[in-house]
């Protein structure tokens, strides 16, 4: 399969008045088109930095990041703008990219309707539940039809039950829209239940310590959690993360 995103020996150093901090060192991996890759790593190891590098928001100090495709970024909190309706929030990336055409708006609205937001389009974010808001954030991310989704712990602000449900929904949406996804998470079981491949990062500076291809195929997240292989993977990743 063709690689849509490649990190080659990427090093990133943050400079502050207090000193410098190596957030990533000689980090190499690639993601192929249509793949769902989850990245787990200890807290503060450089995961968010890695996504910013992928999206081109940061320039690597050394090495190269190559990508062939457009990005959609989804953050931990939904970051919906409270003064905009859900509909207007979903149109935001279209406005920013100056692609706010009738056609693009119709496409975005169709997505919103398809994934259960039809009744909320004219509502303001504060009128929606946390799960619904995160779903709206995903639709906003998909509005410009990006090739690669960068997801930075998108479920971690939700309560457990909502999280399982939203996770299920998001997995279904991403698969049916045939997107490539790079998901960062603290949650090992979330990684196993969603991904085709899991990368385990070392403590800072981040390097890829392990890479595992999971063999669940198209089994949806909740079903995966019921399979015997799930707990085997969990133990293995847990061990590697705490090594």
């Amino acid at each position: 399969m063709e690689n849509i995103l490649t990190f080659r020996d990427v090093t990133h150093i943050y400079h502050t008045v207090r000193g410098e901090l190596v957030a990533a060192q000689e980090l190499s991996f690639s993601v192929s088109r249509g793949e769902f890759v989850a990245i787990i790593g200890p807290s503060g190891c450089g995961k968010t930095t890695l996504l910013s590098l992928a999206a081109g928001l940061l320039k690597p100090s050394a090495g190269s990041v190559e990508s062939s495709g457009s990005f959609g970024y989804m953050l931990q909190k939904d970051e919906l703008f409270p003064w905009r309706t859900i509909e207007k929030n979903i149109f935001l990336p279209l406005e920013v990219k100056r692609k706010n055409t009738q056609e693009a708006r119709r496409r975005a609205l169709a997505l919103a309707e398809k994934y259960g937001l039809a009744d909320f389009l004219k509502s303001y974010p504060k009128q929606l539940s946390g799960g619904m808001r995160q779903r709206a954030a995903l639709i906003r991310t998909l509005a410009t039809d990006p090739d690669i989704l960068l997801l930075d712990e998108p479920f971690s602000a939700l309560d457990y039950q909502t999280r399982l449900n939203v996770c299920e929904d998001v997995a279904a949406i991403i698969r049916s829209e045939q997107k490539t996804a790079l998901l960062i998470t603290h949650d090992i079981s979330e990684a196993i239940s969603l991904a085709d491949r899991v990368l385990v990062l070392s403590a800072r500076p981040a390097r890829v310590a392990h890479s595992h291809t999971l063999d669940f195929g198209d089994v949806p997240p909740l079903k995966r959690r019921e399979q015997p292989a799930f707990s085997a993977w969990f133990e293995r990743l847990w061990g590697e993360l705490n090594a």
Partner: peptide
């Protein structure tokens, strides 16, 4: 909020757009 600015930048927004929107 820094995270909202990050979101705007991830959409490719320039400084003027970040200011106005």
């Amino acid at each position: 909020e820094e995270s909202k600015i990050l979101l705007m930048r991830s959409m490719g927004a320039n400084k003027w757009q970040i200011l106005c929107k």
